[in-house]
Design a protein around this nucleic acid. Structure first.
Lengths: 181, 181
DNA sequence: GGAAATCTACTCGGATACCGCGTGTCCGAGTTATGGTGG
DNA sequence: CCACCATAACTCGGACACGCGGTATCCGAGTAGATTTCC
């Protein structure tokens, strides 16, 4: 199992689409934004699981949600101020790369109670892992949703953005009308 | 669950003790080195589990094992040429920090078969994680067993090294004699 | 007294049990727009 | 024409089922030194 969960992957891909939305046609003023189910089915990921991810993102202050019919989600901040690390933190929490079990204190020669010099400060092995953890996070903090979105738009043809917009538009437009049919 | 397993923690602590051994009294010439059970019980970690860790370390070429009675383990290379990353790799294997599921190819607008531009190259999100993974490994490669051992000997009083040596000496000496009693 | 047999301690490898956690699903509650109904 | 009500669509939150993989243990096999036995 990977340290960065698949939930983070789902969330990042979904966020990329609504980051595109916002930059594509200006900030929609609160109605018509895609719902979590739309974003999930657009990418073939489990819908209810994705819904849970967005409640975490909302609690972390990364997205704003609109309840009720015609509700949905949009970014709470500009895409260039949301880093990959923010998303990882929102979904996975402060999961440690390494959990120190204080083996150093169990040494048999101490006979049960370890002296102060052995348990003071952070364990040397733990310290290495903490540095590695920080290096990892620095790299994740260096990339924002805007960076990812830009990289994607460089590869994709212009028609792709329109196709996605149309797909989402169809969904939001047909939400109610479908019930009439 | 942490990305770096507890097995790595056990292994590193054990290796620290035999790194000390070697630097303490010169390279023992093949007999009398502590066994995996000794190292495990010295630190209160599961013995049989530790034994399995050392077979992995041996396959990775980090330690040499001597079979049979009075057998044991010793470093296969000088302590300053074994990095923390080497141990992580030997125990946990090439575990990825993040497993890309190619979500980008599942986009509904593709209708099943994604075009080449969408699946070529590495996914942008995956690329960020790969950079983070490399940054993490660089930090782990920067610290060797010798560094860790040095940091420990700075904190510990001189008596500690002697106590540990005595404890191990007692074990190896009493291995056979115990059966006589 | 020396050589072979035996015993013991150790590593090696496979098989297996346990269990926490990530993944995914289901359902009820609360919220808001839409459409219909009655005054 | 307006107020009211029912309905549908959506988010929110808790509860729960499932399965994988890390942790740990057990046991048999192979190996080598120490001890005993036998000639």
């Amino acid at each position: 199992m990977a340290h960065v969960s698949t939930g983070v992957e789902y969330a990042l891909h979904c966020l990329l689409f609504i980051a595109d939305e916002r930059q594509g046609n200006g900030a929609r003023d609160g109605r018509g934004q895609p719902g979590t189910r739309d974003l999930a089915e657009l990418q073939g990921v489990p819908a209810e699981f994705t819904a849970k991810l967005f409640t975490k993102l909302q609690k972390a202050g990364l997205v704003e949600t609109v309840e009720g019919a015609h509700g949905g989600v949009r970014l709470a901040r500009p895409a260039d101020s949301i880093t990959v690390d923010d998303v990882v933190l929102a979904i996975d929490g402060e999961r440690a790369l390494f959990e120190c079990r204080e083996i150093r204190a169990r040494c048999a020669v101490f006979g049960g109670d370890a002296p102060g010099w052995a348990t003071s400060g952070t364990c040397g092995i733990h310290a290495v892992m903490l540095r590695a953890h920080e290096a990892m996070r620095r790299e994740m903090q260096a990339t924002t949703l805007a960076d990812l979105s830009l990289g994607l738009s460089r590869k994709a043809p212009a028609s792709y953005g329109r196709d996605v917009d149309d797909w989402l538009e169809d969904r939001t437009a047909n939400r109610i009308r479908k019930s009439q049919a």
